[in-house]
Structures are given as C-alpha cells and as structure tokens.
Simulated assay, not measured.
Amino acid sequence: MEFITNAGHLFLQGGLVMWPLLICSIIAITILIERVCMYNAAKSNMDTLKAKVAELVPQGKWKELRQVCEEDGGVAAELVETAASQPHDVDKQTQALQGAAGAIAARLRAHLNYLETIVTLAPLLGLLGTVTGMIGSFSVLSVSDGEPFAITGGVGEALIATATGLCVAIIALVIHAYLVQREDSLVSEMEEVGAVYMTALVGDNDAA
C-alpha cells in the first residue's frame, strides 16, 4: 500500500507529461499481451506438418492435406492450405506461396511499429517534462528570494519525468525485441514448410 502511495506521489510530481507516458506504457503492455496470444495461436506442430506435407503432396491428396492444415491452425499450416487450394502448377504454386507468405508476415508484424514509436517517443517526453519542470523551478527566483532549496527541489521533481520516460522506453524496447524474435521464428517456420511443400510438389511433377 505504501509503495502505491509513493508511486502515485512521484507520478503527480512528474508533471503533465507523466500522463502520455502512462498511456505509452499501457499501449506497450497491451500490444505485448495481444501479440503473445496471437503468436501462441499461430504456432504449428512442425514435425507433424512437414511429415504430412511430404507424404500427401506426392500422392495428390489435397483434400486430406487441407484437413490436416485446418486442424493444425498455425500460420505455417495456413500457408500450405492456401497453396493446396490453388491449381497445382509449379509456377502458380510458387506465386501462391509467395503471396500468402507476404500477407501472413504482414499480419505477424502488425502493431510492432507502435512499439518502435514508443521507444523513440518516451525519452523525448521525459526530456520535455524535465525542461518544463526546470523552467518552472528557475521561475522561483523571481518570487522566492532566499529559498535556494525551492530550485533544487523543483529540478529533482522534473527529473522524475526523465527517469519515467527512460523506463518506459527500455520496457518497450525489450518487448519489441521479444516480439520480433517470436515473429521471426514463425516466419522461419513458414519458409521451412514452404520449402518442404515445393520439394514434394516438384518431385511429384517430375515423376508425372
């Protein structure tokens, strides 16, 4: 309880810029929760999926393959399902895979640019709070002669905004790095299963 009280007191001391910094932190945490849920749902069972692709594509069992992909539910399976629904010409399949991969990758990257903005914006907001706080502190000179501690106290309060801005930026940076790593992992899965799919398809066409 005391911690919450002290935190609230520091928040109020930081000035008006603390409110946009609070909004930035809420946005960053919201993006983290939403993206983690999305990435967890987008994960595929790669061993099973690759085995089924290598087994069913050469046999031309497209309906069965699409069923496997629907049950998997991941983005790698979605990529295979999209390709399996197209005409089974190698060139058309290649175009289908590339188009689907680009669309899915864009969906995986959604909202990450907001984190990049917060990483840049938060320290600037903190610096703005410090500057405005110092301007207010030095204005004390004109009304509080003989009270030097009023100036140093005001500067100390203004620095709260800078510290908060840096903390928000650091947190957003760590969240962004983690989410980018998760996104890259899912994109790698798509590339891996796409290569298996095309290898099985080309081998099937060659055999035909």
Score class of each variant (00 low, 15 high):
Gly146Cys: 02
Val180Lys: 14
Leu121Thr: 07
Ala163Cys: 10
Glu116Thr: 12
Gly165Thr: 14
Met190Asn: 09
Ala106Lys: 03
Gly154Tyr: 00
Leu125Thr: 12
Thr199Ser: 12
Val168Met: 02
Ala96Asn: 00
Tyr39Met: 03
Glu64Ala: 09
Glu55Pro: 06
Leu186Glu: 00
Leu115Gly: 02
Glu191Lys: 15
Leu12Met: 11
Ser142Cys: 02
Thr199Gln: 09
Gly8Tyr: 06
Ala51Tyr: 13
Ser185Phe: 15
Met18Arg: 00
Leu124Ser: 10
Ile175Leu: 02
Glu2Asn: 04
Ser185Asp: 14
Ile29Asp: 05
Gly126Cys: 04
Met46Trp: 01
Tyr197Ser: 04
Ile151His: 05
Gly153His: 07
Thr94Glu: 09
Asp47Trp: 12
Ser144Gln: 12
Arg35Pro: 00
Leu127Val: 04
Ser44Gln: 01
Gly203Pro: 11
Ser142Thr: 13
Asp72Leu: 04
Ile4Gly: 08
Leu124Ile: 11
Glu157Asn: 07
Thr82Arg: 12
Glu147Lys: 15
Thr164Pro: 05
Ile27Leu: 02
Glu34Trp: 08
Glu191Ile: 10
Leu124Asn: 08
Lys61Asn: 08
Phe11Ser: 07
Arg182Val: 02
Ile170Pro: 04
Ser139Ile: 11
Leu56Trp: 07
Lys92Ile: 15
Gly156Asn: 06
Asp72Thr: 08
Met198Cys: 12
Lys61Met: 07
His88Ser: 11
Ala169Phe: 08
Val140Glu: 06
Pro87Ser: 05
Asn6His: 13
Leu115Glu: 09
Ser44Asn: 02
Ala177Met: 14
Ala42Leu: 06
Ser85Asn: 02
Cys37Asp: 13
Val75Ile: 13
Ala54Asn: 10
Pro148Val: 01
Ala103Pro: 09
Pro20Phe: 00
Thr130Ile: 06
Gly60Trp: 02
Leu112Met: 08
Asp47Glu: 15
Glu191Tyr: 15
Thr130Gln: 07
Gln95Lys: 15
Val75Glu: 05
